[in-house]
Design a protein around this nucleic acid. Structure first.
Lengths: 185, 185
DNA sequence: AACCATGCGGACCGGCGGTCCGCTTCGTTG
DNA sequence: CAACGAAGCGGACCGCCGGTCCGCATGGTT
């Protein structure tokens, strides 16, 4: 028994957040502004998302949904069945694209989740995935640790810095270079 | 013509910050508290350090001074003269020790400098050092990028997480594993 | 049409980083 | 020692923010 206005408002808030991110970058996005832009009271925002952290976590989860699905569906180089090494490289490639298309969101999400980023559901999913692939492809390493350092490549500031000279392809190439070296070693 | 009370207060503020970090961790360290603990007005704190960011940057610089010196003095495995690979591994080992001894400071510094961490003088020094060594020891890589990912190993949350099971030695081992694999690749 | 759980909104709160300015202190000068 | 100006001090003050609260509106059900 979910009221229709509730889901409508939820959507309005997510869309307003996207608009503000696109318009002003990750900075100066206060929840008052988001609520105002969504045409909604602040209380509504907090009822729906619990906190600033929750809002950006949900928005990131939404943007990452397609990737999450691709990971689990056989057939693509991302999905089960492909050799772990290829799967890992394909996943990192895809993540670079996601970072490029959602740079402001990545930045805002980082800021909002800085307190305990290792509890963010999206990050946890990515980390589990990368850890498993690293463990399969490079048995000598501390896979969980290596996964964290690989994912650190997509830190918003680092990604922006790298993409400033060469765009997402440059980021993809650099990440791939590091990942291949790691797996080879 | 630097007034004596100015330097005395500067010192009092740095020591008070350390005490609060030791007592309460990186959280809940407001500048009001720091000023009060130092027995100093808030205005004084801001005159000395400019901002929250400045305070933690200076404190980190102080704690990192010995390491900065070791890097440049010949003779030790850290210093010029040693083979780049050994120098890099020795440096990362040392950084793990620094992270262990200053975990709360690392965390507070990260939070305070999150906005533009790539302008922090200490980070820049470390990054330049690691980049040069990576470039010398693994010519195929994007050295600057690899340096960022290596330094990401010392993210306070990651370091805490890893050290929770095995202490600084575990962190050292994991970092060394990744670094060796990277250089070998 | 009547009822009430669900949800709404925005005034309100505590606390924060940072500023400002009247007052104090230091150290120099004669 | 006296006196003076620059350098420094401190804490009241500001604007903003994340988060809470509660009287009121609304939507779905009977």
């Amino acid at each position: 028994m979910v009221r229709s206005d509730a889901t409508r408002n939820r959507e309005a808030i997510l869309r307003a957040t996207e608009e503000l991110l696109a318009a002003h970058g990750a900075e100066h996005i206060s929840l008052d502004r988001v609520a105002a832009a969504a045409g909604v009271g602040k209380g509504t925002l907090f009822r729906r998302f619990g906190s600033r952290t929750g809002l950006f976590q949900e928005l990131l989860a939404e943007r990452a949904a397609a990737l999450a699905e691709a990971i689990e569906s056989p057939g693509s180089p991302l999905g089960p069945g492909a050799p772990p090494r290829d799967r890992l490289l394909a996943f990192l490639d895809e993540l670079a694209g996601l970072a490029e298309r959602n740079l402001a969101l990545f930045a805002a999400h980082e800021r909002a989740c800085a307190a305990d980023k290792y509890r963010d559901p999206t990050y946890l999913r990515w980390h589990a995935h990368v850890t498993a692939l690293v463990a399969a492809a490079a048995p000598g390493l501390d896979a969980a640790f290596a996964a964290h350092t690989l994912l650190a490549s997509f830190d918003a500031d680092l990604a922006r810095h790298v993409m400033a000279e060469g765009g997402a392809d440059r980021l993809r190439a650099s990440v791939r270079g590091v990942a291949e070296a790691l797996l080879r070693g």
